[in-house]
Write a protein that binds this DNA or RNA. Structure first.
Length: 744
DNA sequence: GCCCGAAGTCTTTTT
DNA sequence: GACTTCGGGC
């Protein structure tokens, strides 16, 4: 046997060597569960002679999947590429792409994102004369999604409704929603799981096929599986029962999207033969951080009792600071990072700022920009949800799946083709009457009565799309996209607009183009054809966290939810205020388990930290336009006083901050900041351009600082250092790779 | 059919 | 505060 298993502790070894039958690994935060999983895979292949082809490992995010894949590649001798490592959603898509015709869908189905779902729901409400003042689209979709998480069909929902008028109405809307999805040959996120389960239940041969294929199944983050996902896994595993699930009930934070904590708490009931192994030694955090985490989570009642321990050093105390408002809070945090960086205490990527809601990112982003600190915001408005991106994607979707009415209707007038609402509703009526798709109705528009003058415009559009369709086969995705941009004049139009906004949009489009290129390359590497459907699918299933590149040196700003599974030497938990975190909703809720979920979220946050943890709060804060006064979060008070360092008085601290980092940065102050900053020589991996598209004397634009003139360019080891004199904020030095200056 | 400004709504968290 | 929707005017 190889000696790679010697580095594991005895509990971990036990988990690795237990290969047959159901196994539940209760893995506390930082207890090395990914190590266990990867070593377990290696052991299965190397020692047990299992064919890599027979192994399935499921994670929640693509990032987790690719990390696991990478680590498996490193320790598995051969054949690691045929191990199936992917997320629940991609796994299901791959299965459905091959077999969903058995359920009466077309195998080229489209995946609807939240935006698409909303548009569709709006449509349905209009059709069914539902008053959206009373039944909000959002809440309807939430109810439907929840039903799907629990594998409840429209029929079942109606039956459960009994005499309840409201519930019956929702059930009817749910039914109509499903019909529309099918008409559009589309699935929403939840359907991906639900339909796969349906497929398995209806087609025994398909299920058996996959049961034989996946003889060994592993599921990561098991505490976050919902009923549908559980059903999916247990169907797959029911033949061989070689199911290994890894999770931590204390880190269950996705109840709102249907995660059923019962799946982990009741695993031993469903699989009576299950072995249970606990991993309680933490390798990540200092003793103080771990003690704080243990103390906080101990306030929860619904949990499997356990206590993490570590052999690590005691470490520093938990820092807590309270500020007058959110600005000062952000200034402090960013100042601390800048300071630590200046003193050589770590790189930017060693720091993470974690908050409860996405909206809180803004202040930190602003301060980072002012301090010239590279950062990345994870989450918030999805890149692919931006208008210009969606427009172009809908062209691609139309080409890919002509049944997707939503996509066709979105682009029929983008750019303006002078086809109005009246015409569109006539086409829609005709399509409904004839029971054909919207696009097919357009193709036979001459048969539609009272279309009149618009006919020629519609014909123009149809010819245009048909032309693109005929090219789709031969073109790469990139070529197709560029053709669309050229023929529609999309970018030309934006260029003519010439505003701050339109320039940003063009930049986004450029990024989309490079994503098609990256997709092409990845396909070639894997030896898979880079199809249009494949590209659209990848985009639909991508999460923002997936784009975090561990080689890039930037501070990460994200929600606590996004931070799960990550670790950082230094963590800032900001906005620690009752009403923010725990959220107002959870405090007010009758169901005290809501508050417990928030506490688990806090536990997740604390345990992200390896060396240092800072919690901050503000006395007053702007929330949606008006000022709120919040108390310090109860979670802060649950950390034993002796573990906390309250620091100096805030008033004493302030001058030092404003000296270095306030917005009205006079030249001398900025110099101070930069003088002690030898960081261009260190690893600052922003890909260095071969040359810059501007030179000394050119006028350039910066996202935050506005317009300025380039004064100097110094070629550094990894990037160019550019000095710019800005109209508004004066002279600044910055790195070309990060500053993204645009010549104007 | 299209554009612009006023009013209304929202936010927890995400694949 | 930021984004979307709606209604009035052209």
């Amino acid at each position: 046997m190889r000696d790679i298993y010697n580095t594991l502790n005895s509990r971990q070894q036990e988990a690795v060597f237990h290969t047959e039958g159901p196994l539940l690994i209760l893995a506390g935060a930082g207890s090395g569960k990914t190590r266990v999983l990867t070593h377990r895979i290696a052991y299965l292949i190397d020692e047990k002679g299992v064919n890599p082809w027979n192994i399935l490992a499921i994670t929640f995010t693509n990032k987790a999947a690719s990390e696991m894949r990478e680590r498996v590649d490193k320790i598995v001798g051969f054949g690691s590429e045929s191990i199936w490592v992917s997320t629940f959603h991609s796994t299901c898509v791959r299965i459905l792409r091959r077999h969903i015709d058995r359920l009466g869908y077309d195998n080229s189905f489209t995946i609807y994102d939240t935006d698409d779902q909303k548009t569709l729901m709006k449509d349905i409400c209009r059709r069914l004369n539902v008053d959206t003042k009373i039944y909000k689209e959002r809440s309807l979709l939430a109810q439907i999604s929840h039903a799907k998480d629990e594998l409840i069909t429209p029929d079942e929902m109606e039956m459960n409704a009994a005499g309840d008028y409201n519930k019956k109405k929702v059930a009817a809307i749910y039914r109509e929603y499903q019909t529309s999805l099918r008409k559009n040959n589309a699935l929403d996120f939840d359907d991906l799981i639900v339909k796969t389960v349906e497929l398995f239940q209806n087609c025994g041969d398909v299920l058996e096929n996959y049961q034989e294929r996946f003889k060994y199944i592993m599921v990561d983050e098991y505490q976050d599986t919902n009923t549908a996902q559980f059903k999916f896994v247990s169907l797959l595993a029911s033949k061989y029962e070689n199911l290994c699930v890894v999770g931590d009930d204390d880190q269950s934070i996705y109840k709102f999207r249907g995660a059923n904590i019962g799946n982990i708490l009741g695993f031993e009931h469903v699989f009576p033969d299950a072995a249970v192994i606990r991993l309680e030694q933490n390798y990540r955090s200092t003793q103080n951080i771990l003690r704080a985490a243990n103390e906080v989570i101990a306030h929860n009642t619904a949990r499997k009792p356990k206590t993490l321990w570590t052999e690590n050093q005691e470490g520093e105390k938990i820092h807590f600071r309270q500020f007058m408002n959110g600005y000062e809070e952000a200034e402090y945090v960013v100042g601390e990072i800048a300071g630590a960086r200046r003193e050589g205490k770590g790189m930017y990527k060693d720091f993470a700022v974690l908050y409860r809601t996405n909206a809180q990112s803004r202040l930190f982003e602003e301060k980072c920009l002012l301090a010239n600190i590279p950062y990345k915001i994870v989450g918030g408005v999805n890149f692919y949800a931006r208008k210009e991106i969606k427009d172009l994607l809908c062209y691609l979707k139309t080409i890919d799946n002509a049944k997707d009415d939503l996509a066709v209707r979105r682009i029929i007038n983008v750019p303006k083709r002078g086809i109005g609402a009246t015409t569109l509703s006539r086409v829609q009526d005709y399509a409904d009457q004839m029971d054909i798709s919207f696009y097919d109705a357009l193709r036979v528009a001459e048969e539609i009565p009272s279309i009149g003058r618009s006919l020629s415009k519609i014909d123009g559009f149809v010819t245009f799309i048909q032309g693109l369709k005929s090219k789709a086969e031969a073109y790469t995705v990139r070529e197709l996209l560029e053709e669309i941009i050229r023929l529609t004049g999309y970018v030309t139009e934006l260029e003519a607009e010439d505003t701050e906004e339109s320039r940003a949009r063009i930049e986004n489009i450029d990024e989309l183009i490079s994503k098609t290129e990256a997709y092409q390359e990845a396909g070639e590497e894997r030896g898979e054809p880079a199809t249009l459907s494949g590209f659209l699918e990848e985009i639909a299933l991508i999460a923002d966290i997936d784009s975090v590149d561990p080689d890039q040196d930037y501070v990460l700003l994200m929600t606590l939810h996004s931070a799960k599974g990550l670790e950082f030497p230094n963590v800032f938990l900001v906005g620690m205020e009752d009403g923010i975190f725990p959220s107002y909703m959870s405090i007010m809720s009758d169901d005290c388990s809501d508050l417990e979920e928030e506490r688990r979220l806090c536990y997740v946050g604390i345990t992200r930290a390896m060396k240092e943890l800072t919690m901050t709060s503000a006395r007053q804060r702007m929330i949606r336009g008006d000022v709120q006064y919040n108390k310090v979060s109860r979670f802060v008070r649950e950390v034993p006083r002796e573990l906390v360092d309250l620091g100096y008085k805030v008033e004493e601290k302030k001058p030092k901050i404003s000296e270095s980092l306030t917005g009205d940065s006079s030249l001398s102050k900025m110099r101070q900041v930069f003088a002690a900053k030898p960081f261009q020589a260190t690893q600052f991996k922003v890909t260095k351009a071969d040359s810059l598209d501007y030179q000394i004397g050119d006028t350039v634009r910066h996202v935050k600082f506005g317009v300025g003139v380039v004064k100097n360019i110094v070629e550094g080891g990894r990037d160019y250092e550019v000095t710019v004199d800005f109209d508004k904020v004066g002279v600044k030095k910055m790195f070309a790779g990060f500053a993204k200056l645009k010549k104007i």
